[in-house]
Amino acid sequence: MSATAVPTGKTTARTSDRAAGENRLGLKLVAPAVVVMLIVTAWPMIQALYLSLFQYRLTAPDEKEFVGLANYASVLGDSLFWQDTFNTLLIMVVTVAVELVIGFVFAMVMHRVIFARGVIRTAILIPYGIITVVSAFAWQFTFSLSNGWVNSWFAWLPGISSDTNWFGDHWPAMFAIMVSEIWKTTPFMSLLLLAGLSQVSEDMIEAAKVDGATWWQRLWKVILPNMRAAIMVAVLFRALDAFRIFDNIFVMTRGAQDTESSSFLTYRQVIEQFQLGLGSALSVLLFLSVLLLAFSIVKLFRVDLAQARGEG
């Protein structure tokens, strides 16, 4: 693990002295980072937990009242909450699945390309680096009824005509949101997969080839199983990221046509409606969902977290 080996040949007392000193120094060095990380997360979460037990609205501060778990009851009994949770999960599953496929193709191409590697790396990093809000605008304008090119380029497809109103119905609007999300985040996925791909030994692939395995067999029996760790880490990170989708929806539909996500719902309750009580209950539920989701992905797919943390 550590590059420092405890020097040998010294007395036990000095060794433990030295270990204690190292321990203290280590704690001192990580302290600032840990404090900054917790100050903005742990304390506000406790605050949210507390506020979620009150009926409390900033526009009527005098009516603050302890209501126990009533906020949770109203949230969990609400159809909008479940609709938004469903939307969020759907966006997560679809975008991660599509990104896995596209990202893998990207990674294969990048792995194989021998010329112009810099060009393709640059091209792929632009969506990664671009501001999500900008991506959302670019795609919103792409699908725009009066100013977008999708309708004029794809009018030959069934169901698309020059006056298809993409943001006028639930499914087309969800589609547009997902396209923007996929465009923006596929590069991240493909770079993680590329790193995994480069760890698969060429000899093994060559050996399979000699044994007469087809390209398809080599892919499924040799390459993918050996990339398992990388794929799982990529899925974990992207899934949790997609679950928090907010920017794209905010810019593209503002939640109209029932395209709202859990994050967007929470934001609206707190910031637009000043419902600190109900909003805090939603915040807590959102936090718990993320925990549950992370836990299930880790357990279900047996993700090696040591690898995710950069240990090893």
Binding site: L145, S146, N165, F167, G168, Q257
Partner: peptide
Amino acid sequence: PADLSVAQEGQAGA
């Protein structure tokens, strides 16, 4: 109009 469900003042004007 085709954009009835998303029309604000600007779209209506267009």
